[in-house]
Nucleic acid binder design. Structure first.
Lengths: 161, 161
DNA sequence: CGTATATACTTGCGATGTCAAGGATGTTAG
DNA sequence: CTAACATCCTTGACATCGCAAGTATATACG
């Protein structure tokens, strides 16, 4: 590549950047739609739902906050505040760790599990409609494979302690 | 290995959802990295840069705020506030529209153009490193094509006035 | 032990962005 | 002409989230 400044045409057609731009736009568009529906129907944020689902499928329906933050890709402080909200709503409670007094577990309550199941019904359909619809099964697999190549910083698999 | 209950692993391997999950995670990870670098090196947000680039390549280096908001996928109010910042920094100025008193143009200043060029140098490299590196040219094209299928709500073509 | 360092979590602060509401201007229909 | 409506933009109130700094606990090393 030369050091010349690219024109709009060149910018738009440059393969790498084009993918990045579309990635950004697609994220903004799909995310906005999904989150407004989720908010309207269940009073949940995308991140809220994300956390609820993680807990729902976690062994014992509980997770350390650190592991939660790693798997959802929020900051530690982000998780604290998000869980504050979920606790206030009664969907999550805290539990202390016997072996390590530093860690607090986030535990899904029965109400939280119910909420999660209820939200899933509409949300998965929404994801399907807004994100999945334009793709054939092969394309989905392709897309998933491609996205899987991107670096997730340090997403250590949440290992039980 | 085989369990009767649907495990987190199995959920994650469901093709549609897997793509969506990876999409979310990848966006969070890549975006966070890119924006912190852009902030550190140039004091710009990803959105700031996005707007500057759009203006840079626009005819006359100016755009109506509506068109800007449509192409960058921010709310109208988001654009107002973003441009407030760019104006305060001296990279953008306002211009009235002769034929329609409602519209205000955002015009890139020479300083803004210089800023944009300077930021491009490092930012494009960062995008390349964090988003482009894991892909072969074919994969980039594939990814761009796939992402292009996603709905962008209503991205009307910016019509000249 | 005792000090140094790493880890888990919380909190204050600031930045970004959305929504709802409002004001100003343009456009259309009666 | 006027009323109704649409469009462009701004503002105030609010939520989310990251960073930096602080606290508490654990571990490692002398």
């Amino acid at each position: 590549m030369s050091s010349q400044v690219l024109t709009a045409q060149q910018i738009a057609s440059e393969p790498g950047l084009s993918a990045w731009t579309r990635f950004l736009r697609a994220h903004a568009a799909v995310t906005r739609q999904l989150s407004s529906r989720l908010e309207a129907e269940h009073g949940l944020t995308l991140s809220d739902f994300d956390v609820l689902i993680q807990l729902y499928h976690a062994p014992g329906r509980q997770m350390r906050r650190v592991d939660l933050s790693r798997s959802v890709l929020l900051t530690a402080s982000g998780i604290t505040r998000l869980l504050d909200g979920l606790e206030r709503a009664g969907w999550v409670t805290k539990a202390r760790c016997a072996s390590d007094a530093r860690v607090t577990y986030a535990v899904l309550t029965d109400e939280g599990a119910a909420k999660c199941e209820a939200a899933q019904k509409t949300h998965l359909a929404d994801v399907e409609e807004l994100f999945g619809a334009p793709f054939t099964p092969e394309e989905r697999a392709q897309l998933a494979a491609l996205l899987g190549k991107l670096p997730l910083a340090h997403t250590s698999e949440a290992c039980s302690t």
